[in-house]
Simulated assay, not measured.
Amino acid sequence: MTRFRRSALIASPTSPAQAAVADLRSRYEWADLPDADSLVVLGGDGFMLQTLHAMLERRRILPAFGMNLGTVGFLMNEWRLPGLDDRIERARPFRVSPLLMTATTIDGERHVLPAINEVSLLRETRQTAKLLVEVNDRVVMPELVCDGILVATPAGSTAYNLSANGPILPLESKLIALTPISPFRPRRWRGAILPEKARISLTVLEADKRPVSAVADQREVRDVSRVEIAIDHIRDLTIMFDPEHALDDRITMEQFIA
């Protein structure tokens, strides 16, 4: 029986993931989570994001090696039982810098939330949103009329950002994407690619008449008046991948999928 170097095993509650847990525990020995210096995560992309967010909240960040037992598995490696110790030893680490969203509501409440994929602003009613867009305290767009807007990290650029016709960003590009969602005016604006050090501020115009919510990955704050977004390098995450199937390769190949 192989013992990892203080690796803990966590899994989603789905039947495939729980069956895999039983197989892995019968073959390998595992550390308890408080004693671990790395994680093996079983499930899909959603469970991996949930796990990464839990680490951010607890302020104890460990490298994570995921194996896909979900649907897409963009953030995961292939599920295989044999040779896991060697795979983890050879795994290629990737730094993922989350966004930090500071959202202020119409009532003056302040919410600070991390986002690994994206921060999105979305209209709450049938009324279009009107937003003032600032980059590094400079007004770059006095009025954007749209369904919403999002800021995506390279790791999240192939998710909601891609569905909104945003650009795919290489993982090590040190860039972020600013992408409008169904823009009405200016109609031809398709967004911007910004350096990761950029600070983005979004002010909701006519916030009472045209309410807008802000979402950091899956966590929503409703009726916002202003949202500030920046990369949070203090809490960088590390995801590990098999060398032959790394995240940067996946991101590159997504550009050739019709």
Score class of each variant (00 low, 15 high):
residue 14 T to Y: 00
residue 20 A to T: 06
residue 21 V to Y: 06
residue 16 P to M: 02
residue 29 E to Q: 15
residue 31 A to Q: 09
residue 34 P to I: 06
residue 25 R to N: 02
residue 45 D to V: 04
residue 30 W to G: 05
residue 20 A to N: 00
residue 34 P to E: 13
residue 37 D to W: 03
residue 32 D to G: 11
residue 40 V to T: 09
residue 35 D to W: 05
residue 44 G to W: 02
residue 41 V to C: 13
residue 22 A to K: 14
residue 16 P to H: 03
residue 25 R to I: 09
residue 41 V to I: 10
residue 50 Q to V: 00
residue 21 V to G: 07
residue 50 Q to H: 15
residue 49 L to E: 03
residue 48 M to Y: 01
residue 25 R to M: 11
residue 36 A to F: 01
residue 40 V to K: 02
residue 33 L to W: 12
residue 45 D to W: 08
residue 41 V to K: 10
residue 22 A to S: 15
residue 42 L to C: 10
residue 18 Q to W: 00
residue 48 M to N: 05
residue 43 G to M: 08
residue 44 G to N: 07
residue 50 Q to K: 14
residue 24 L to M: 11
residue 31 A to N: 04
residue 48 M to V: 15
residue 38 S to V: 08
residue 42 L to H: 06
residue 50 Q to C: 05
residue 22 A to H: 13
residue 30 W to M: 10
residue 40 V to Y: 01
residue 18 Q to T: 02
residue 25 R to E: 13
residue 32 D to E: 15
residue 25 R to Y: 12
residue 23 D to H: 13
residue 26 S to C: 11
residue 33 L to R: 10
residue 43 G to P: 00
residue 22 A to P: 03
residue 21 V to D: 01
residue 25 R to S: 09
residue 36 A to Y: 03
residue 23 D to W: 04
residue 24 L to Y: 06
residue 40 V to W: 01
residue 43 G to L: 09
residue 45 D to E: 07
residue 49 L to G: 05
residue 44 G to Y: 03
residue 17 A to Y: 00
residue 47 F to Y: 13
residue 21 V to S: 09
residue 32 D to V: 11
residue 16 P to Q: 03
residue 26 S to R: 15
residue 50 Q to M: 10
